[in-house]
């Protein structure tokens, strides 16, 4: 049964990209365990506004775990201590009366801080723009059933396509690598006949862009897979490496 709890939150506050940041601690009383983690932050902000202070900036949108907008490093875990969910799906029943909860932004060279807990993930856009697509124009397409696709291939592609682009993998990685994100898109398209013609080019250009933007290398620690809210498997990274090496050998 859900109770009301009293907690403290230790939140990273930073006015702007170039300002010096610091932790601030706030006390919150009578938080229902039935409320979501972000609703707890709404309550904190309501409290701050009523005290004439500046509310905490954090990214969020759909609040049902699919848009990928919410982030937050909670008690040392991207998207918090609970598995297979995003921060917006985390509920306060994962915490106890008297807890102090530490909340930080994604910390990674690839994601500079904009304000407080909000980071700039434009780098993911640039990687996608470098090749995360099938080059087809609108219209003039043969019938959708013209090319049969084996069901298991389609399912594997769907597993990879479930990535929400939140960046938890980068935040979890000690090297700040974006390999899981890149691998998910490369795998999805490499598994489908529609994506095969460009598979080599795609792998090369997305990896090159990732390197250029300052993301680290993959050393197979697997932290990304553990923290991924959508269970994207690191076997996708193996598939990406295969695609990438094949492409390089052909060069």
């Amino acid at each position: 049964m859900d109770k009301d709890i009293n907690i403290k939150v230790k939140v990273w506050r930073q006015k702007g990209p170039k300002e010096k940041g610091r932790f601030e601690t706030y006390a919150l009383k009578n938080i229902s365990q039935g409320s979501s983690f972000l609703e707890m932050l709404d309550i904190l902000n309501e409290q701050l506004i009523n005290e004439g202070k500046i509310p905490v900036a954090f990214d969020h949108d759909c609040r049902e775990g699919i848009c990928g907008m919410c982030s937050l490093y909670i008690n040392g875990h991207p998207h918090g201590p609970d598995g297979e969910i995003t921060t917006c799906q985390l509920h306060m029943r994962s915490f106890n009366d008297g807890d102090t909860i530490t909340i930080e932004p994604w910390r990674s060279a690839g994601f500079p801080i904009i304000k407080d807990l909000v980071v700039d993930r434009t780098a993911f856009e640039k990687i996608m723009q470098a090749g995360g697509y099938v080059s087809v124009n609108t219209g003039g397409i043969p019938d959708a059933n013209a090319i049969p696709i084996p069901r298991d291939k389609a399912e594997l592609a769907m597993d990879a396509a479930a990535c929400i682009g939140c960046g938890a993998c980068v935040a979890a990685c000690k090297n700040g690598s974006a390999m899981l994100f890149v691998a998910a898109k490369v795998s999805q398209l490499a598994l489908l006949p529609q994506g095969r013609p460009e598979a080599a080019r795609r792998a090369k250009s997305m990896v090159a862009k990732m390197d250029e933007l300052g993301f680290g290398n993959c050393t197979n620690t697997g932290a990304c897979e553990v923290e991924c809210p959508k269970n994207i498997s690191i076997s996708n990274i193996a598939r990406l490496n295969r695609e990438f090496l094949n492409a390089k050998f052909k060069d």
């Binding site: 099938v134 043969p142 959708a144 059933n145 592609a157 529609q194």
Partner: peptide, 22 residues
Amino acid sequence: NSIIDQCVAQGVPFAREYGGLL
């Protein structure tokens, strides 16, 4: 109908039957 064709060409992984069709 053209929408479905377009999405498949982009690599949208729609659900499929065992025979490989949508």
